[in-house]
Computed example of a mutant assay.
Amino acid sequence: MTRINWFPGHMHKARKEIAEVMDEIDLVIEVLDARLPHSSENPLINQLRRNKPVLKLLNKQDLADPGKTDDWLDYFNDQPDIQAIAMDQTQLKLIKQIPDICKSFAASRVRSGRPVRAMIMGIPNVGKSTLINSLLGRRIAKVGNEPAVTRHQKRYSVHNGLALSDTPGILWPKIEDQDSGYRLAASGAIKDTAIEQDLVAGYAGQFLIDEYPLILMQRYKLDRLPDNADELFDALGRKRGCLRPGGHVDHFKAADILLNELRSGKIGRITFETVVEWEQKRIAAEQAAAEEAAASSAQEKDE
């Protein structure tokens, strides 16, 4: 697999700006993609928030696998100073409750009559700007179905006691886990120019074959489950008329259909990752680090 690095200059600037104003913030609102809750969780936020409480909003839950979303909510809510809620932009009643939830994290400021200061953070294209517009009840933040629409930090005020700061969607300098990189790209968090589309579509296609075969077959009316992504694009392309002269399937067009329908939810409600998977990866990483430290220590003794 190709390792994905994507850290534009404005994101480096945003990281510095966030660090500078964090002392003035009472809590962080982190917007995650419910389809990839861990991969869309920016490790830089834990470094920058300085033990501030966090409200994690698993946005786009209407596109995600409901059972797996429940597992992720349990996982996050078991952690100290974190509250997690699943939502989507149609749940206006729930969105209106967010200011009160934020105020519960800073009771002393509420008692003193001062606004609770919240910074909204998240990776690109996760729905931050749409959420801000919903909270404010008017179109203030620029919205776009592509990464990196917000480029500069902005401050807004909510009249019901919440002072809200918006930040650019920031990715971390290097995406260490290859699965995370491809999942972010498949979801649309990373611009299509950052990695070849056929690689991303191939990853997504194989994932659907392995994890959501029935949904895949129903969506594209397949008679049998393809063995691999190439077979999937061939079958999908023939179903959708993606043909070149001579009857050859245009796999690029077929891949584009798959990615667009995956991102829009037309394929069905899917989640790219599970809590169990990431716990296994964490344990394996800790074991590898321990073995590396032991080997290094042994080498020092031999020298």
Rank of each mutant, 00 (worst) to 15 (best):
E176H: 09
Q47F: 09
I120K: 00
I209L: 04
A163D: 15
Y203Q: 07
A285T: 03
T90A: 04
I101L: 12
T69P: 04
V110G: 05
L199P: 02
S297N: 10
S157H: 06
H152P: 01
D223L: 14
A298K: 15
Y75A: 09
L162Y: 01
H159G: 09
L32W: 04
K103E: 02
L92M: 06
Q206Y: 14
A107I: 12
I170S: 10
L225C: 09
T130E: 04
K301Y: 15
R224Y: 12
L258M: 14
A293M: 13
I25K: 03
E17V: 00
F272L: 15
K128A: 01
R111F: 11
P245F: 06
Q47T: 06
M217K: 14
S108T: 14
A14F: 03
T271M: 07
R240D: 10
P99L: 08
E176Q: 11
D166K: 07
A64W: 06
L171R: 03
I190F: 12
I25Q: 07
K174S: 13
I283S: 10
P147E: 10
A293H: 07
E20L: 11
H10D: 10
P213W: 12
L58I: 06
D88N: 15
E292S: 13
E176S: 13
V126S: 08
L171T: 13
S187A: 15
P147Y: 08
F272A: 05
Y156M: 11
E286C: 01
P147A: 08
G161M: 06
R244P: 00
L92H: 09
S296P: 00
Q218W: 02
V54T: 14
A163R: 06
P168T: 04
Q206R: 14
S180V: 04
P43C: 11
P99A: 13
T271C: 12
T271P: 01
A201K: 04
A201P: 09
D198E: 08
R263G: 07
E286M: 11
G205H: 03
L32D: 02
L225H: 06
S134N: 11
T130I: 02
T2L: 09
N46G: 15
D234K: 11
G246L: 04
R114I: 01
Y182T: 02
G127P: 04
E231T: 00
L48Q: 14
K93D: 14
G241W: 05
T2A: 12
L243H: 08
R219H: 10
D166R: 03
D166F: 04
S108G: 00
R219D: 05
E292V: 06
N59C: 08
H251A: 13
G122W: 08
R139H: 03
I270L: 13
D192C: 02
D230R: 13
V21S: 00
E286Y: 02
S296A: 15
L58Q: 12
K13Y: 02
L92A: 10
L258I: 04
K191H: 13
T271Q: 13
P173M: 15
H12V: 13
A118I: 05
P173F: 13
V28H: 05
A229M: 03
H159Q: 09
I18G: 00
L225R: 10
Q79W: 01
N145K: 03
T193K: 15
G9E: 09
S187P: 00
A141S: 12
W72G: 02
V143K: 12
